[in-house]
Amino acid sequence: MQQKSWQQRLLTLPPMGYLLIFFAIPTLIMLFASFRYTGEYGGLAPWYSIENGTLAFDLTLENWQRLFETDIYLRLFFKSIGYALVTTLLCILLGYPLALMIARSQKKHRDLLLLLVILPFWSNFLVRIYAWMIIFSPNGALTQMINSLRDLLGLAPISIMYSATAVITCLVYVHLPFMVLPLYANLEKHNPALLDAAQDLGANRWRRFWRITWPLSLSGVYAGSILVFIPVLGMFAIPDLLGGTDGIMIANVIKQQFVESRDWPFGSVLSMVLTATAVLVVLLGAKIGQQGAR
């Protein structure tokens, strides 16, 4: 028994220590920073002062109050959640058939087909955004094509660049593999005998899908949805590069507080709210997932 706990410590302590120092403590520091004042030129003001020999704490709730002062930040949160939901939904719509097709193709082809999904994911994320910037540019082939079509129909030309459409398309593009992989992992394990049995019992294709494949794959759908939803919620680069005048999401404002406005305490407040949202989503997803698995 003695030996076992020695082993356990050897295995557990190094990674735990590292993550405590570089993940848990920074998060706590951020929580603490949300109660501090901004320094005169940005950054943080000292959180305590000693005047006439007495210690005084310079902490404040002001930053949190600011969050509720107007509804703009809450609205922005809801807007970001909306974007994340739409993206997740589109990823399911596009990713599910893809994962199903791979899972049902011949075994020798599966690895290749799956690799083809992951491959773009391994090219740099900014490169992928950049590709869409080219596509959406008003002089790009896609926009030209759409606009000549609209022209035929007598409609005014539109611009896709700098719009919500551009942002969401790119969000879906970047996160699609996150949906396909867990879905495939799930679908691949399904026992084909079940479908055969259903077919023998006279169930048509749709019925077989909705009554067997879909319910069995729900845990994969939840896993994929979380993997898509959360990173989308924290995305700032795509709205930054492709979004128009109203394209920003919550992460853009967080970035703005840390980079442009130098208001770290308020940036920390927004970050904490985002953290809480992410934790909630994960817990919710885990709970639904458990129920679904039952």
Binding site: T38, G42, R66, T70, I72, Y73, R75, L76, K79, T245, D246, I248, N252, V253, Q256, Q257, S261, R262, D263
Partner: peptide, 14 residues
């Protein structure tokens, strides 16, 4: 800066 920032964020969101 805080005031300007607030006005600016309002602009960006609405």
């Amino acid at each position: 800066r805080r005031l300007l920032n607030k006005l600016w964020t309002e602009i960006k969101i609405k």
